[in-house]
C-alpha cells in the first residue's frame, strides 16, 4: 500500500479528560477510511490533529513520510469539510470556493475557470454569485466540498458532513460523495456515527471507542468478523451471548426462535415491533434480552410465548468480551 498519511501512537488530553489513548493508522493513497464511533469517542479530535487544528500530547503525524506533527494547519495540504460547513458568510460562492487559490496568488481568470469546473463537479452550475445564506443545507454542503477539493489536497477530512441533512438527501449524498472521491482519487478520512453510512462508503472502517481503535478493517471484516463485543453490537447490532466460557456475537437475523422448543437457550417473547421492513422480536433469556429480526410483519409468536433460542454455529462469531 502506498501510504499517504500515518498516525502513530497519538495521545491527547483536554485537562484531566483523556480523549485519545494511542491511535495508530496508516491510510493509503486514494483510500476512503471512515472513523466510526459514538459521540465523545475522539473522532473529531483525531481529525483536528490530522488537520493541525490541535497538536497531540505525544505521537507523530506523518504526511507522505514527512513529520508534520507540529506544522501549522496552513502548511499541510490537508483540508477539512466541517460539520457546520463553515462557509464564509461575507463571501459569495465563487469567493468561498476560490479562497485557497486566492491565498496562493493564482490568477483571477484561472480561479474563475477552476471554480466553474468545481461547481459543475458538485452539480451547482451557475451558483457563483449566490451568498451562503441563500443556499439550502445540501447546497452549502456541496459548496463546502468544492471549496476543500479545488486545490487537490493530499488528504480530505470530512467531519460528519451529512449529519445535518435529512435522510433522503443523506442517501443521495453518500452515493455522490463516493463517486466524487473515486473521480478525484483523494484520500478521504470520514467521520460518522452512522454504521450504515460507514458500511456503504468506506474502503476501510476504524471503529473507535474511548479514544482507541477497537478494530480497523474492511466493511466485511467489521460486519462479519467483529473482533470485539463492542464492534459486533455497534456495527452489526448483534446479540452478545456468553456461553460455555466464550463470548459469541450473533446478529439478529441469524437468531432462530422455536415455539415451545428447547434450542440452546430457553426464553419468553417480551415484545414485537416493526420498523424498516423488519419485525423485531425481543426475547427474555437467562443470557439477557436478545433480539431476533424477520422480514415481513407476520409472525406466529406473541408476547408471553415460551421459545427456544438457537443459531447455526457458522453464524456465531467468537469475540473479545467487553
Amino acid at each position: 500500500m502506498d501510504v499517504i498519511l500515518e498516525l502513530s501512537d497519538i495521545h491527547k488530553s483536554f485537562g484531566a479528560t483523556k480523549v485519545l489513548n494511542g491511535i495508530d493508522l496508516a491510510a493509503g493513497r486514494g483510500e476512503f477510511i471512515t472513523l466510526l464511533g459514538s459521540s465523545g469517542c475522539g473522532k473529531t479530535t483525531t481529525l483536528r490533529i490530522i488537520s493541525g487544528l490541535e497538536t497531540p500530547d505525544s505521537g507523530r503525524v506523518l504526511l507522505e513520510g514527512a513529520d508534520v506533527t507540529d506544522a501549522e494547519p496552513n502548511k499541510r495540504g490537508v483540508h477539512t469539510v466541517f460539520q457546520s460547513y463553515a462557509l464564509f458568510p461575507h463571501m459569495n460562492v465563487e469567493a468561498n470556493i476560490g479562497y485557497s487559490l486566492r491565498l496562493r496568488g493564482v490568477k483571477k481568470a484561472e480561479i474563475k475557470a477552476k471554480v466553474k469546473e468545481m461547481l459543475d463537479l458538485v452539480q451547482l452550475p451557475g451558483f457563483e454569485s449566490r451568498m451562503p445564506g441563500e443556499l439550502s443545507g445540501g447546497q452549502r454542503q456541496r459548496v463546502a466540498i468544492a471549496r476543500s477539493v479545488i486545490d487537490s489536497p493530499r488528504v480530505l477530512l470530512l467531519d460528519e458532513p451529512l449529519g445535518a441533512l435529512d435522510l433522503q438527501l443523506r442517501r443521495a449524498m453518500q452515493i455522490e460523495l463516493k463517486r466524487l472521491q473515486k473521480k478525484l482519487g483523494i484520500t478521504f478520512i470520514y467521520i460518522t456515527h452512522d454504521q450504515e453510512e460507514a458500511l456503504n462508503m468506506s474502503d476501510r472502517i476504524a471503529v473507535m471507542r474511548n479514544g482507541l481503535f477497537e478494530q480497523v478493517g474492511t466493511p466485511g471484516d467489521v460486519y462479519d468478523r467483529p473482533k470485539t463485543a463492542y464492534v459486533a453490537r455497534f456495527v452489526g447490532s448483534a446479540n452478545i451471548i456468553e456461553r460455555g466460557g466464550k463470548t459469541l456475537a450473533v446478529r439478529s437475523e441469524y437468531l432462530e426462535l422455536e415455539k415451545d422448543g428447547a434450542g440452546y437457550l430457553p426464553g419468553v417473547v417480551k415484545e414485537k415491533s416493526f420498523s424498516g421492513g423488519m419485525l423485531r422480536i425481543a426475547v427474555d433469556t437467562e443470557a439477557g434480552e436478545l433480539v431476533a429480526s424477520r422480514h415481513g410483519i407476520d409472525s406466529p409468536l406473541a408476547p408471553g410465548d415460551a421459545v427456544g433460542v438457537s443459531w447455526a454455529e457458522k453464524n456465531a462469531v467468537e469475540v473479545e468480551p467487553e
Binding site: S51, G52, L53, E72, P73, N74, V78, H79, T80, F82, S84, A86, L87, F88, P89, H90, Y99, S100, L103, R104, R147, S148, D151
Partner: peptide
C-alpha cells in the same frame, strides 16, 4: 463571531495574519 470560520481559513491555507484580515476583520 463563529471561530470555526477562522479554523476553516487556516485549514484552507491561510496564515494567521491572512486569516485575520480575510475573515476575522471582515466579520
Amino acid at each position: 463571531m463563529d471561530w470555526s470560520l477562522v479554523e476553516a481559513a487556516r485549514d484552507l491555507g491561510a496564515s494567521r495574519i491572512r486569516a485575520f484580515f480575510t475573515v476575522t476583520l471582515k466579520m
